[in-house]
């Protein structure tokens, strides 16, 4: 199977991210540490398969790793080495 065939959109990680974050994260914007691109998490490239223990989110501009989520042994480990920042909607703020 080629890399292209394995690729998903970051929005496919919404369920997994909902297990970890209080906020809806696929609509959140983040900045790539490798190339500086800014975009919503849902628009990045996701590599995740139903039988794998985790997911890798890569920058859609440079393919740098943004986020690694591993779910095993009763815990989540979240690696955020590729994100300079992430910005979420403040749900308490009046819109």
């Amino acid at each position: 199977m080629t890399e292209q065939e394995l690729r998903l959109d970051g929005n496919a990680a919404a369920g997994l991210l909902q297990e970890i974050f209080v906020h809806e994260v696929t609509a959140a914007r983040g900045a790539c540490a490798a190339c500086g691109s800014v975009g919503p998490m849902g628009a990045q490239h996701l590599y995740m398969s139903p039988r794998s223990p985790g997911a890798v989110l890569r920058c859609s501009a440079c393919e740098g790793v943004l986020m690694v989520i591993v779910r095993a042994g009763g815990r989540f480990r979240l690696g955020l080495q590729g994100l300079v920042w992430i910005e979420m909607q403040d749900v308490d703020a009046t819109s």
Binding site: E5, L6, L8, D9, N11, A43, S49
Partner: peptide, 13 residues
Amino acid sequence: PAHIKTERFGPTG
């Protein structure tokens, strides 16, 4: 690009 939103099925099995 910011106006194009995508949802890929991928090999979800």
